[in-house]
Nucleic acid binder design. Structure first.
Lengths: 108, 108
DNA sequence: TCAATATGACAACAAAAGGTGTCTTATTAC
DNA sequence: GTAATAAGACACCTTTTGTTGTCATATTGA
């Protein structure tokens, strides 16, 4: 299994607010062990660990064992897929705003 | 309830491949009734209808009753939230590619 | 060596998601 | 008016999620 293979859909991994918060925390601090990440949530360690496992399956985090702790770091690369996908729809909402502006112009 | 209120998280609505395909179909054709959308899937009408209900809760589609059919159209606007979110991480994967290129350069 | 710490591996469970099928109602075509 | 069509409303079922709790294991500090 190479680095690019994803066991889990990126969209799915990112759908949960807890997991998005985890990515945010790792974006801020570069590398953090499980117990330090857990502090930022109300849920227990096991739950956070499972969320991290899902992020790992989607290749969004990289886990590295250091002594008795497992340190997690962000790997943002798979998010590019989401950006590419959402960019396709960019035209649609911009088009909508243009139409809205035209209506507002006519009201004057 | 105004147009901007979302009963459902956009990330969640978009996590399912069936729902992403629905958005794609509606991007192509502007307006489609349930039974025509159903044709493109293996699952039954009820299942597709449920997915559309979820998209509606996230404000990603607008439903409009015309005679005996309900026509759905795309509303891409809520996707902007995802684009804003993912753009924050753009720097991270680009940075990663720069590092990778440096390593490849050194190998020469 | 021994206690404290960090985590993995499970088992268990409630709630939500994804799907099916059936029945009913509204609309249209003939 | 009657048959066919489109869809909503439910009931029901299976699988996946999200969470907790417990037990076992590896690592570290004193």
């Amino acid at each position: 299994m190479n680095e690019n293979s994803q066991l889990r859909d990126v969209y799915d991994a990112v759908a949960d607010p807890t997991r998005r918060k985890l990515l945010q925390l790792l974006a801020d601090v570069e590398e953090l062990p499980l117990h330090e990440l857990t502090v930022h949530f109300q849920m227990g360690r096991t739950a956070v660990s499972k969320h991290l496992a899902i992020l790992k399956e989607a290749n969004l985090v990289i886990a590295r064992r250091v002594g008795r702790e497992t340190r997690y770091r962000l790997n943002a690369t798979p998010l590019k897929e989401i950006q590419d996908w959402v960019s396709y729809y960019e035209g649609f909402w911009k088009e909508r705003m243009v139409k809205l502006n035209l209506i507002l112009e006519e009201k004057k």
